[in-house]
Structure formats: structure tokens, C-alpha cells
Amino acid sequence: MSAITVQIPTALRPQAGDHEMLEVEGESVRQVLDGLCQQYPDLGKRLFKNENEVNRFINLYLNDEDIRFLDQLETKVKPGDELAIVPAIAGG
């Protein structure tokens, strides 16, 4: 198993132990998120609409590429990859 870095947005840090970044193991985006949400169940509730679907106002970027246009949740990850959780920013 390889560990990748997950960037937690400010809005979701209270549900992720106030971490900005977490190292999480997994071979696909789905495995990484499963691992993350096992550790932080409240984060899972904010991220996922249901088991197979991330809320549509939150995007996931693997090395700055939107996973919707890669292999979605099944996108493979390798050591050193960065997964950024990016919610729409509404303020201003």
C-alpha cells in the first residue's frame, strides 16, 4: 500500500481533526477516501452524498486533475500523489 497526501479544505477541517493535510494509504481514490472517512466519520458525511457519489458541490483533484475526468473514484494513486478536496467557495 502506498501513502498519498490529502489536502483538507478549511471548511472541512473541523471534521478532520483540524488537519490541513493527512497522509492516507490506498491504491485508488476510493480506498484513500474510505480510509480517511473510517478515521473521520463526520468528514465522510460531509463529503459523500451516498456510498458511490461525492456531493456535487465538492470536487476532487488528483495532482490538480479533476478525478471526474480520470477514472472517477476508481482512479489509481501512487506514492507522492496529492489529492485535493475542493469545495465551491461561496463567500465574497
Binding site: 478549511t10 456535487r56 458541490f57 463567500g91 465574497g92
Partner: peptide, 28 residues
């Protein structure tokens, strides 16, 4: 295309509840 859906009410922080750093709005 990028954000398919608006964040639902109450889901995201707003400047009036969470605060906002002056320079950030200037930068953006």
C-alpha cells in the same frame, strides 16, 4: 461544468459566520 450544484444552505461557511481575512478578498 466545474461545480455541478450549488452548495446547500448552511453547508459552507460564510464570511459573516466564519470570518474573512481582508487581504484574501483583495487578492482574489
Amino acid at each position: 461544468c466545474i461545480f455541478e450544484q450549488a452548495p446547500p444552505p448552511g453547508m459552507n461557511p460564510t464570511c459573516d459566520t466564519t470570518g474573512v481575512l481582508g487581504p484574501v478578498v483583495s487578492i482574489v
